[in-house]
Simulated assay, not measured.
Amino acid sequence: MTENPNQPRAYDVVMGGQNTPPINAVVLGGIEGVKRRLANPEIEVRVAALKDALKYEEAGLDLIIQALQDKSNQIKFTAYSLLKDRTEPKVKQQLNKFFPRSQFDVITVNEFGQEISRRSQEARGFPEDLGKGVFLKMVSIPGGTFMMGSPETEKGRDSDEGPQHQVTVAPFFMGKYEVTQAQWKVVAALPQINISLNANPSRFKGANRPVQNVPWNEAQEFCARLSIKTGKTYRLPSEAEWEYACRAGTTTPFYFGETITTDLANYNGSSIYGSEWKGIDRQQTTDVGSFPPNAFGLYDMHGNVWEWCADSYHENYNGATSDGSVWESGGNNIRLVRGGSWFNSPAYCRSASRNSGALDYWYVILGFRVAVSSGFLL
């Protein structure tokens, strides 16, 4: 077989690369050299080896695919960044396992709560292994621009929901569900960073129900412990990220449309918002994921428990950030909660509805979900 003069051979040293050789190290050649460097304990050496592996066609591609299973998050996501735009079937198959797709139906209703459309949608994300058989499912939220807040004509609107303003949000990942009691218990057992955590704070018990009675500062502690465990920077979402993720491209009061029903969310169904019939007042939380998701594949963004955001509370959006970042300046120690709860009437569960609580305030209607920036993908 005639050798291709334009490709490295197994015994070649790769020339012309952009990576600086590690200090006090021997530069090994060929695919065998790449394999040797991938076994090096230094992360920087292994990252450089992965980038060089692309020069060796199929053999190098196979090494990068194998790196998707590496124990190091930095190596795994370096491999992902090198593969994400490739079209080979075997690469697509492995990426689907790495960031698996989920399919679901997106429902839209009219002011009477009647379903007027249903369409199939899919989302991608990844499961974070917390240990003890417990996983935290994260969903990819694409970046985009939206109008934050509510129009003055929206029913149930409060003055702190305006003025409406344009915000551009960068891509990030968000919890598919509110943090559950099972997830909380596992993370609460991890080493303390700043404050202690009660492993079982919730009133309505259930492993898959959302954790309740969680103050803002304890939600922050949860994120800090989770970050140390995983090597990713988990955090509470900004208020802008939360509303953008909740709306998922909609401009109506709810991501379901002009109203909601108790077939679609867990809230106080003895009250109505539009022209729908009264529904069920369950008077407690429900398992996460019990109701249909929005178009981003997020569940329970309306009702169940209020969800903490990172921002300080401001009485209106005058001077608000436009880049989706946390808004601190001019605020105070009161923090934002979003989404309404099982206790509230539907008006409080709207996409634009805002509420607040002190850093150490806890109650049976309060929970949270986590976010992580896409930057960990390198």
Rank of each mutant, 00 (worst) to 15 (best):
A53S: 09
K132E: 14
A48T: 02
F98Y: 06
R118I: 04
G303W: 01
V106H: 12
V109Q: 08
C309T: 05
D287C: 02
A67T: 08
V139P: 04
D105Q: 15
V288T: 00
N6G: 10
C309Y: 00
A245I: 08
S322G: 12
F222Y: 05
F256N: 05
K205E: 10
E3N: 14
A10P: 06
E221T: 01
A347C: 09
A188S: 10
F376R: 01
L54R: 14
Q94Y: 09
K229F: 13
P89E: 06
G331Y: 03
L83M: 03
K176Y: 08
Q121A: 15
L226T: 03
K176G: 05
P22E: 15
T233S: 15
N40V: 10
Q212A: 09
Q283F: 09
I195T: 11
Y267A: 05
Q220Y: 12
G131Q: 07
G131H: 07
T261M: 00
G375D: 14
E3W: 11
D12K: 06
G17N: 14
I260F: 03
S140A: 15
V134I: 07
S270G: 08
F146M: 03
A170I: 10
M1F: 14
W242R: 02
D105G: 12
G249Y: 12
K155N: 13
Q284H: 11
F256A: 02
R124T: 06
G330C: 04
V305G: 02
D281P: 03
M301Y: 09
V139A: 11
T261G: 02
D287V: 00
W308T: 08
T153L: 14
M301I: 11
V13I: 14
P8E: 14
A182Y: 04
L28M: 12
S353R: 01
E152D: 15
Q283S: 13
D158G: 07
Q66I: 13
P163H: 09
E307I: 04
G367S: 08
P191S: 10
N110T: 07
G162T: 02
V305P: 00
V134R: 09
W308C: 00
D158A: 13
